Amino acid sequence: MTQPRVLYTDPPWLIDGGRPDPALASVEREVLGPEVELRFGPHRDGRYQITDPAMLEQAAGCDVLVVYRTQVTEELLDAAGAGLKVVVRQGVGVDNLNAGLLAARGLPAYNVPDYCVDEVATHTSALALALERQLVPQHQTLAGGTFDIYAGGTPHRTNRRTLGIVGFGRIGRAVARRLGAFYGRVRVYDPYIGRDLAEGYGAQAVDTLAELLAQSDLVTLHCPLNPETDGLIDAAALRRMKPGSFLVNAARGRLIDPEALYRALDEQWIAGAGLDVFSPENPHQDARWHPVLKHPGVVVTSHRAFLSEEAEASSRRRVAELVRAALDGRTEGLVGRVHAPEAGR
């Protein structure tokens, strides 16, 4: 019997001293067993090379592909070959899974949709409250040698302000419970939920994004990236926001137009932004983000809202269990199914 092969394309938690160390794959080994051949994507100069031709060589003959940041492409699937059973995303988002391509190939795909709800809701709340209380300019001013209680401006009472949540899935609901406790009103926009659902979380649903933007003092984004939401927060949307309001994004970078955001900040359409996500992932690789990063009204983090020791451990184990189930042919009813092949394929 041929030894099963699994390729982890770019798992950063298996990096030690700047290079992948297979010995760190203890969770994966425990779940998958010694009979499974574990492969890792190409790595050079401290980074995984997710578009390198060597990735295709590593994928050859694999039964399962586990992708993190790597984009699923025709070339990658062709390289794996006819024996490929399943593709698993080591994370919540599905935009790099290329669901349409997988559907056309009749390949099932899975993600881990709920492993970091606590972390992202907490991080979103931290960004929001840092903006509301102007923690960054306060820190910079005091650490720089000046004691000034007014550095960054005079805040407002949050219990007189309105929180607006765009997207009311698992994380949006957790944010309503946590961050909503600080605000006098919570508004929700999500065209795919019933209006009464928001009421159960102490919020009120509105009918349009424009309505939510016009009413909210702080807007936080929790929607997936798809053709409908790509560039959702553009210049027109930012113009609808209240003067003095804040925008927080810990969902997907492409939800926001960076040039429009900088203009909104520079011309004071809004007061500030808290950002954990960008497109490309590293904003230093796109000059459009540079003025945003330098703006004094912005708080930024390096796409780590999902991160904790517990979340990472859970994600690794749950993905390994999905892989083991796929190798054993036990995928019916598993949590996290993104796409199932059509009957008879």
Rank of each mutant, 00 (worst) to 15 (best):
A99Y: 01
A151H: 09
E310L: 13
D234H: 10
L97D: 15
A237P: 09
A235I: 06
G244Q: 04
Y262V: 08
E37W: 04
F306T: 09
T162L: 02
G144W: 08
G145H: 14
E119I: 01
D148F: 11
A151W: 15
A340C: 11
R318E: 15
N249H: 07
T141L: 03
L24F: 04
P296W: 07
A174N: 04
Y262A: 05
G274K: 05
V112P: 09
E30K: 00
E30H: 00
R133Y: 12
V94D: 14
Y150P: 05
L209Y: 12
N111W: 06
R240E: 10
I50V: 12
V186K: 01
E281M: 01
D52M: 02
P34I: 00
L221T: 08
R133T: 07
A126L: 05
T122V: 03
G145F: 14
A264C: 02
Q140F: 11
Q140R: 15
R5F: 07
L265R: 11
V117H: 10
P191G: 00
K85P: 15
L212G: 06
A260F: 14
L212S: 01
R5G: 10
R157M: 03
V188R: 01
M241Y: 14
N159R: 05
V6C: 04
F147A: 07
A80F: 05
V36K: 04
R252K: 08
I233V: 12
A23P: 04
L212K: 04
L197D: 03
A326L: 05
A260I: 09
Q215R: 08
P341Y: 02
P243R: 14
Q90P: 02
V6S: 05
A25Y: 11
P34C: 01
G253R: 04
Y192A: 03
T208H: 11
T51M: 00
T154D: 13
V298H: 06
M1Y: 11
Q285P: 00
D78H: 06
G164M: 03
E57Q: 07
P224K: 08
N111E: 07
G144A: 02
R239Q: 12
V72Y: 11
Q140I: 10
G152F: 09
V94T: 15
D266Y: 13
S245H: 04
A59K: 04
G46A: 01
R330T: 10
E332H: 12
S314A: 14
Y110G: 14
R19A: 11
L327S: 13
V66T: 09
R324L: 07
V66K: 02
V166G: 05
Q285C: 00
P258H: 14
A128S: 13
E119N: 05
N159D: 08
E35M: 00
H303W: 09
A273R: 01
A130T: 15
E309T: 15
L56I: 09
V112A: 08
L327I: 15
S302D: 13
R239N: 09
V120K: 02
L131C: 13
P4E: 10
K85H: 14
V27A: 00
Y189E: 06
E259W: 00
A287W: 14
L238Y: 06
